[in-house]
Design a protein around this nucleic acid. Structure first.
Lengths: 412, 412
DNA sequence: GTAATTAGTTCGATCACAGAACGAATAAAT
DNA sequence: ATTTATTCGTTCTGTGATCGAACTAATTAC
């Protein structure tokens, strides 16, 4: 963009861009009507945007009375983002364009050595994903990385990430930025998940919202008034530390939270073993419960009980309109049904219970969402406060044929 | 202000106004330096603001090298707000000016008949408060009313306010607006309290914050990133419904929350009676504990235990930097000390525990704060998004001699 | 073919702002 | 007491962004 466009111009430019992004191919006359700006101004701005490569002509209107109009649309490939989901076991990367199209998506097992090895793996996977798109990696301006821990924006380190060793020992953000040559934003994976479900999942457009992920751990992403809740130490939503499920005053509860010890994978298995004397993994216990085994049913009932209380807590503190359950355990309908039955007995406020509809892709989708909004404001809002561009409508289905799963990673 | 000042002008105007509000008496040259706008623009805007009566000359600089400068300041009495604290037993009203000076403060017992009687009482008390200021009531543009319940902004009714009957039966907001001739904003009293403590109390400038009021009930005002958390049904912070303290699955817990039954006045007294067989009010129990009585001490210990868990919950959900305790019970140091001792045993994240420093005035002070920010944006931001004016520094001490407590109300 | 309608450009005027030049008022230096 | 440096505030001029009106262009309806 030019040297120093005045605040007024930047504001108009942003408005126009937002209109084009949202209203698909649209003529300049229509933009003028919608934004209230004069036709002359729109033409000027459109010319500028076209010169800079952000928008392009895309056709003409026809059928209506009057002169045909040239319609404009965003140039999706003008700039891209990389969304990364760094899980304890799988590493996913996606490339999405300015319009929110996911152009490629690749997966491989996470490098268990952690630390700088993982950072290098991310960079390599991001490049490989971009190779599938046909768009050169230089177009990627921003990488959003979902991490299973609390990223500290001042130091670039990732704290409280027990599943991946070594990320609290160096500036992950800068190291990755160096390797990728892009800006890098680290964000907690559950935070991305809640944004994903709100943008393209089962909480579409809901402003007061929580997403609870239950799997090897338990954690939540919380949104309030459409804004993410991060907390003073980026530890908001660490529901594992809720003081019930097991004794919160046991010293152990300061390391692995009281609730996490009860409702996450390890806790469920431990309770099942205490009742039956048998070792079993979580899917087996669920299967046993479906088969009518009393002990397995009791374990699920207890788990549902704890989760109902968890939702009661969320309801009392932030009063969300909907709570979306996700993660390998949270998505199980057997559990969801039990929770839905319990809730009216212990929560006086209305809460809808949803189930994650994006499954294991949710973090990636959330990364795309937040990446897009970052990129849009970086490109078009020009530092003008209030000139916020809202997200384009979600189109998260993968472009056909571009999704690749690499089953064998470097250290599989 | 004029017909339709352009967005650019409005932005500058808002910036200038903000600078004047914050930097006290200040010369136009200094404003230019601070804002980056040209001296010419500042002079123009200042002329306009002076004409409209928002600012005035207040003196000259001296002592420094160079020509003396005319300094400008806000005209505090140009516009006022009324802050009302509608409690179950006491009704307080304050009048504050644009600079945040509290000009008058009056109190009387709440009209126990509730409903429209209370609305009329508010109007009458607000007028009486304004009479003490010497400023005509017409200058009052906005009334902020703290209510012990959940105001519904769409209907203007106040829900979940058991202490004051009848407020859920009609549009309280409109009724009061009619009587006062001002805009009216209803807000939950604890929400105002947390804003008050953040503006002028023991949580100055802290963005991630909770204020817990413990008295006849228990409730919290929660702030996240400097923004109030209201929740989907304006019921955020209803900590009384937290599922511990007593059995959350008892049907009674859907009416009076499980935690509220344990930690609020009634619960404390009931537990004391169960242990000793004696009826006693809360101050008596505290006194007994100080005197070394074991049962009273045990009641306090249990209460502190529940409150520590409550803070653990807040910590896990929104991860506040500080939690401020208030209310007649929450302010007692005997309790605060016990809680501080328990916290490191059950909360892994750092949380500071503060004590309300504004006492019973906290809601009123919060009302002033939120009223000021409303008024500033209404007057100066001109609907320009992003043109937010931040609050002036707090000056909540009452102007000498203007504070009046009416001990006998109409229905005392 | 003509009228009606819509799209987009050109032109002139206005407004907000920056920056330079200038006059005014003061403190420090001589 | 005079000069000098410094700061304040105004006036003037140029630029950029915007609007609205007039105008041209292209299309459908009749």
């Amino acid at each position: 963009m030019s040297d120093s466009p005045s605040i007024s111009r930047q504001f108009s430019l942003c408005t126009v861009m937002e209109t084009i992004v949202h209203c698909g191919p649209i003529s300049r006359a229509s933009i003028a009507k919608q934004t209230g700006l004069s036709k002359q101004t729109i033409s000027e701005i459109a010319r500028q945007l076209e010169e800079d490569g952000w928008i392009r002509e895309t056709g003409r209107t026809s059928g209506h009375v009057g002169r045909t109009a040239i319609t404009y649309e965003i140039v999706p490939e003008a700039s891209c983002i990389a969304a990364i989901d760094l899980g304890g076991r799988k590493l996913r990367a996606a490339i999405a364009d300015l319009a929110g199209n996911v152009l490629a998506e690749v997966t491989e097992p996470t490098d268990l050595r952690g630390g700088r090895h993982v950072v290098e793996q991310i960079a390599s996977l991001a490049h490989r994903a971009s190779a599938h798109t046909g768009i050169p990696f230089e177009k990627v301006r921003l990488a959003i990385v979902g991490v299973p821990g609390a990223p500290d924006r001042t130091t670039g380190r990732v704290l409280m990430a027990p599943n991946i060793p070594g990320l609290d020992e160096f500036d992950v953000s800068s190291a990755l930025a160096e390797l990728l040559g892009t800006d890098v934003v680290l964000e907690n994976d559950v935070n991305l998940a809640v944004i994903g479900e709100r943008w393209a999942g089962s909480a579409n457009g809901i402003d007061d919202l929580a997403y609870i992920a239950i799997g090897t751990g338990i954690g939540a992403g919380v949104m309030v008034g459409g804004e993410l809740v991060r907390g003073a130490g980026n530890a908001a939503g660490e529901l594992g530390f809720l003081p019930f499920g097991s004794d919160p005053f046991e010293p152990e509860s300061l390391k692995v939270g009281a609730l996490e010890r009860a409702t996450a994978t390890a806790g469920i298995c431990a309770r099942y073993q205490a009742l039956t004397g048998r070792n079993a993994d979580v899917p087996t216990i669920f299967a046993a419960a479906s088969g009518g085994q009393a002990e397995a049913g009791r374990v699920l009932n207890e788990t549902a009980h704890h989760l109902a209380l968890t939702i009661a807590v969320l309801s009392a503190v932030t009063n969300p309109r909907r709570v979306v359950l996700g993660g390998s355990i949270g998505r199980r309908m057997e559990l969801v049904e039990r929770i839905r039955a319990l809730l009216p007995l212990c929560v006086p406020l209305p809460v809808e219970i949803g189930v994650s509809s994006l499954g294991s892709r949710v973090t990636l989708v959330g990364g795309v969402a937040i990446g897009l909004s970052h990129l849009h404001s970086a490109l078009f809002s020009g530092g003008v406060p209030g000139a916020q561009i809202s997200l384009p409508p979600a189109r998260v289905s993968i472009v056909a044929g571009s999704s690749v799963t690499l089953q064998s990673g470097p250290l599989a």
